[in-house]
């Protein structure tokens, strides 16, 4: 299993499930959740969190600014 080096937090209620972050993610970390939020959108979430490198590609393309990105400074 790959080392976890990054993580994202998606604001589930702000996410409109546009899928752009899922496509932009180079490590296939993200996917749309089978569950929906209060607006009925399948919100984005870390399906494979161990893949995340904290590259911020997802937050760059997110039209609703609902992704916060963290990255560990030191390699484990």
């Amino acid at each position: 299993m790959a080392k976890v080096r990054g993580a994202v937090v998606v604001d589930n209620e702000e996410c409109k499930g546009c899928n752009l972050c899922v496509v932009a993610c180079p490590t296939q970390t993200l996917a749309l959740n089978r569950n929906v939020n209060n607006k009925g959108y399948h919100y984005s979430y870390m399906e494979n969190p161990e893949n995340c490198t904290g590259c911020t590609n997802c937050s760059a393309v997110c039209p609703d600014s609902c992704i916060t990105v963290y990255r560990t400074k030191a390699e484990h």
Partner: peptide, 26 residues
């Protein structure tokens, strides 16, 4: 362990307020 303030690399601009944008998805 990663989601800690010291590891933050991107968060919403402080100039964007909390109103949900009315735009369509994407």
């Amino acid at each position: 362990a990663i989601i800690k303030p010291e590891n933050l690399v991107y968060s919403k601009s402080p100039l964007l307020n909390d109103d949900s944008m009315h735009y369509c998805p994407g």
